[in-house]
């Protein structure tokens, strides 16, 4: 049975795809530093509470966009952290690379989604997990 959640649109877009879930705050620098994680998130819909405090997380996410290793979308159960926000905005304005992003989806969203779940994101901020 599918479940629907509503959040705040950070970067608008419609997308259907497969979830990669980080139950804990994720250090974005690991996307480039750990190949296994890179493989897990590349092109996926990354679902997370928010990113962990790290100085270069946003810049690493930006490079991941340039080199084709970024997630296609990011869904945050909490408010978006500043590192993710900067990476997503820099990619959009300086690389014309859009990572669709919705935040403030709530803990219930993170409890409901599993890695491999099918997700549909609508440009209104609605997220459907099946």
């Amino acid at each position: 049975m599918s479940k629907s959640f509503n959040g705040r649109v950070v970067t608008k877009g419609n997308l259907s795809g497969t979830a990669a879930v980080a139950a804990q705050k994720l250090d974005l620098t690991k996307i480039l530093e750990h190949q296994a994680l890179q493989k897990d998130v590349e092109g996926k819909i990354l679902c997370l509470p928010s990113a962990a405090v790290s100085n270069f997380g946003g810049l690493y996410l930006l490079t991941a966009c340039k080199t084709g290793h970024a997630p296609a979308a990011m869904l945050f159960s909490d408010s978006i952290d500043t590192e993710s926000a900067s990476g997503i905005l820099l990619a959009s304005n300086w690389l014309n690379h859009i990572i669709i992003a919705v935040d403030q989806l709530g803990q219930e969203f993170l409890n409901s989604v599993k890695s491999g779940s099918k997700i549909e994101i609508k440009d209104t901020g609605e997220v459907i997990v099946s």
Partner: peptide
């Protein structure tokens, strides 16, 4: 500014 490391991974920056 925090950016003082010439990290290879900062390519896009």
């Amino acid at each position: 500014f925090a950016t003082s490391f010439g990290l290879q991974h900062l390519e896009a920056m």
